[in-house]
């Protein structure tokens, strides 16, 4: 066990490589009948190159990416702001907390029909869905993080001459970062899951839409290309936040 644990992180690639090799062999040997339903890995990669070369994949990927980035950034900034205010001012917490507790449990996709009618089917629709999916959890996590900062730190900062705003910005907010980042990290991955679902159901462009088109054309290879891309994006978004959190808090937390 000890020897296994000492392996460098790069070795995580090995099981993946083995998995791909088995996949390739099983598909090539035609162990499962029906090539079109189970293409080998190499065929999928060929299709990947083709989709990149003819611009179909990049354009759909970019539409999804832009939606996720805008929706997630705006949603989490709003969540951070409202969450910070709620965590800091008891009055605002009392005012908003019941509302947020009721809205938070609604699955983001549940809003889709309502938003389709309110907003219509346009670029704003997926962004609004991502906004909702990011806002509530991040708001909630931020408020919790801020409220859980030990009151003693606040008092100490006060006696050292800090005004309320300074205490918030220099002590309370930094100390709440670990909790806030938990929310950001989860929601960064969640944003990708939600955007695909929204595109599959309601929006004619993006990776989700491409997936649905591939299904109707029985193009398993394209479906697999999309799924691999999604896996990579969700993984790297979550990783990016883990990295950022480490950068900001590793030295002390």
């Amino acid at each position: 066990m000890e020897r296994l644990r000492r392996l460098k992180p790069g070795w995580g690639i090995l099981p993946v490589a083995i998995f791909l090799a088995i996949w390739e062999i099983v598909a090539r040997l035609d162990l499962i009948p029906g090539q079109i339903f189970f293409p080998p890995f190499s065929a999928v990669m060929q299709e990947f190159y083709r989709l990149v070369a003819n611009g179909v994949l990049p354009s759909n990927f970019l539409s999804s990416l832009v939606r996720v980035l805008i929706g997630f950034c705006v949603g989490s900034l709003a969540g951070l702001l409202v969450g910070t205010l709620m965590g800091w001012k008891e009055l605002l917490n009392r005012a908003f907390s019941p509302l947020i507790s009721l809205l938070y449990p609604i699955p983001a996709l549940g809003w889709l029909p309502l938003l389709m009618l309110w907003i219509g089917i346009n670029e704003l629709l997926p962004i609004a869905i991502i906004f909702i999916c990011s806002f509530f959890p991040i708001c909630y996590n931020t408020a919790t993080g801020i409220r859980s900062v030990d009151e003693n730190f606040v008092q100490a900062a006060r006696t050292l001459g800090a005004s309320n705003l300074r205490v918030l910005l220099t002590i309370v907010f930094p100390l709440a970062l670990p909790t806030i980042f938990t929310g950001l990290r989860l929601e960064a991955g969640m944003a990708w899951r939600v955007i695909i679902a929204a595109e599959m159901v309601a929006i004619p462009t993006g990776i989700g839409a491409l997936l649905m088109k591939a299904e109707s054309l029985i193009r398993v290879d394209i479906i697999i290309v999309c799924l691999m891309l999604l896996s990579l994006m969700t993984f790297s978004f979550e990783r990016a936040f883990i990295y950022l959190e480490g950068k900001l808090t590793r030295q002390w937390s």
Binding site: N152, Q155, A156, R158, T159, L160, G161, P174, L175, S253
Partner: peptide, 18 residues
């Protein structure tokens, strides 16, 4: 408190961890 010009050493010190 921030205007009272006091130095306060709290019992559990409360150093800012970050």
């Amino acid at each position: 408190p921030q205007k009272r010009k006091i130095g306060y050493l709290f019992q559990d010190l409360v150093l800012f961890p970050h």
